[in-house]
Amino acid sequence: MGAWFSREIVDGGRLRMLFFLVAFILAFLFIRFSVRMIRRRARWWPGNVTPGGHHIHHVVFGLVFMCVGGVGGLMVSDSTSAAAAALAAVFGAGTALVLDEFALVLHLDDVYWTQQGRLSVQVVFVAVALCGLALLGLRPLGMAAVSEDQADDFARGAWAIAVTLLFNLSMAVITLLKGKVWTGLIGIFVSVFSFVGAVRLARPGSPWARWRYREGSRKLRRSAARERRLHQPVAQLARSIEDLIAGRPSQPRPDEPAAPPARKRE
């Protein structure tokens, strides 16, 4: 195990990414546990940070951690040192605290326990997935494979890289325009996902469907049928996982009863 860690993580230049990702996940789980205990009014939990009666959101602590980890990391020249790993962990923890209140920053309103606030959880899941792919050694848009294969011929390699980047990026953009967010984001690292997503039907309501599918057309009907058959069960499962990890929003979805209102969010 030690030899694998040294070979794949340290020598592979992914030590900081590993510590960033682990700290990111742990910080997100901790802060979600904290806010749920505060929402439940658990007496044994410390509660909100309110100096002078002013509530401080944890995005503030996240920004401080990001500044310390980011600036400190720039000062460390050895990317394989313990200091570099520790500062990457500090940066990861700060990023988790910031993204956990992403919706609050986006809306400039305390939407933490509303449906709009669920966007924060989705952004965190996306960040974990992309960091995990990077930790596995995958490079966006297939850059690594092309550069290694064409390293012996600079001119031919430059053209190959440009064409590959343009093709993969185009496929990823088309997939995202078709409303397939997860497929498009993963396709940035694994191009076959974006290629498959680009050639298949768009989701109803997506920008591609609005631009390309006429009302009442066969493609739009097939897209709606596929949405009911495939995407809705997956979306329901994803919402269940989000509720399990992050807690249910106070504002109900149309298909569920309202939850009791909370006096304080966090």
Rank of each mutant, 00 (worst) to 15 (best):
A262F: 14
L133G: 00
K178Q: 07
L18H: 01
K180T: 00
G117W: 00
D109T: 14
L15K: 05
F19D: 00
L130F: 05
A84L: 14
T183M: 14
V71H: 14
S6P: 13
V234G: 11
G187M: 04
S34M: 06
S191Q: 06
R212K: 09
L63K: 02
I241T: 08
G187K: 00
S223N: 03
Q115E: 15
S206A: 09
F28G: 06
P252H: 01
P249C: 09
F33H: 12
L220P: 04
M17Q: 13
M75P: 01
R39N: 10
S240M: 14
V234I: 13
M66Q: 12
A93I: 03
A160T: 07
A88C: 14
G52E: 12
G92R: 00
W211G: 12
A238T: 09
V59N: 01
D100F: 01
S34C: 13
F189V: 04
L220K: 08
A96V: 06
D100A: 07
R248S: 07
W211P: 06
T175A: 03
P233N: 13
F193E: 00
S77I: 10
R118S: 01
W45R: 13
Q232D: 10
Q115C: 09
A162K: 11
G117C: 01
F195T: 03
L220D: 04
R32D: 09
A84R: 05
G132Q: 10
I186T: 02
R214I: 09
S250E: 12
S194K: 00
A162S: 15
H54T: 13
L141H: 02
R156P: 01
H54S: 07
R39S: 11
A27V: 11
F167H: 08
D255Q: 15
R228P: 02
M143D: 06
G47L: 03
A172L: 03
G205Y: 04
A238H: 06
P260E: 12
S206Y: 01
A225P: 04
L29D: 07
L177V: 13
A209G: 13
R203L: 12
M171C: 12
I56A: 07
Q150W: 15
E8I: 11
S250Q: 13
A42S: 15
F20E: 02
R200E: 08
A209D: 12
T95N: 06
V10W: 04
